[in-house]
């Protein structure tokens, strides 16, 4: 597994270093977006920047872009490999293909968090602002990312069969937006609780909201629902990806684009 991790890490770093303009431009974009969050809040409210609300906005946005990246990265990876003609070589290596694409997704997130972290640190230093957040929020953030990988595997499975999934990803992102603004997990009734286990992120978003924005202590039931949601989506994503892999091999379409 270490070799797989190192190989994918090197491949990602090479990509970043080989195309420095692209890397710098994407880091600059991140900087501008976060600067907009930091300074925009101050401009709109005509008050000094900072405080819990800014922290919530910044962390919420960070979680959102990481979630989107984790959901889409594997599908893009499958689509690019198919387009470049290397997918069949990837599917021939003696690793389960789920592992290969999951490791790539992990590396992509690490590669994304490095510039995000650097930009945030730079802005904090420039604005002398402190972000307030509870370390306990790290657990649901990791749960959100792992759930996003589950969903990403599902979309990647679709990409194995259909190859082009750009529009599918947009629909998924739209649905995620709907899920995030809908307080499914805190609605009364068993049906909503069951739905919050089955609908990706539903429980975790409520958990995060409670920890970051409302300053509340989430219930044990919400934690349990979040864990069950993570397991349900991740296991479901793995099972669907494996199923799609088998179907693609049965139909002989791995090498198609």
């Amino acid at each position: 597994m270490n070799r797989l991790l190192i190989a994918e890490w090197r491949r990602m770093v090479v990509g970043l270093v080989r195309y420095p303009i692209d890397t710098i431009a994407s880091t600059l974009t991140l900087f501008l977006v976060f600067a907009g969050l930091f300074y925009g809040a101050s401009y709109i409210t005509s008050s000094p920047i900072g405080g819990g609300r800014l922290s919530t906005v910044v962390l919420g946005y960070t979680v959102w872009i990481v979630m989107m990246a984790a959901t889409g990265d594997m599908a893009w990876s499958v689509q690019n490999e198919a387009q470049n003609g290397t997918l069949e070589q990837v599917m021939m290596v003696p690793w389960n293909s789920v592992w290969v694409f999951l490791v790539r997704a992990v590396m992509a997130i690490v590669g994304m968090l490095v510039p995000v972290g650097a930009v945030l640190l730079a802005l904090l230093a420039m604005t002398h602002v402190h972000l307030f957040w509870r370390p306990a929020a790290l657990v649901p953030i990791l749960m959100v990312i792992a759930t996003a990988w589950g969903l990403g595997l599902l979309v990647a499975g679709i990409a194995l069969l259909l190859k082009r999934v750009g529009q599918v990803l947009q629909i998924v992102q739209f649905l995620l937006l709907f899920v995030i603004v809908s307080p499914v997990a805190v609605l009364p009734g068993l049906g909503w609780h069951l739905a919050s286990i089955a609908i990706p992120f539903a429980a975790q978003v409520s958990l995060l909201h409670g920890l970051l924005a409302a300053g509340a202590t989430p219930t044990a039931w919400l934690w349990l629902e979040s864990v069950m949601n993570l397991l349900f989506v991740l296991m479901g994503g793995i099972a669907l990806f494996i199923g799609a892999d088998r179907l693609a091999r049965r139909q002989g379409i791995l090498g198609h684009y």
């Binding site: 491949r11 470049n84 003609g85 290397t86 990837v90 290596v93 003696p94 090498g255």
Partner: peptide
């Protein structure tokens, strides 16, 4: 494989060989 590029065009020759070697547990 025929018709397949088998390699990452944006990596160097050596990077390709090391990558595929690692993927095959070398």
């Amino acid at each position: 494989l025929e018709g397949s590029r088998n390699l990452y065009w944006r990596l160097t020759v050596l990077e390709n060989l090391l990558y595929w070697g690692a993927m095959r547990r070398v």
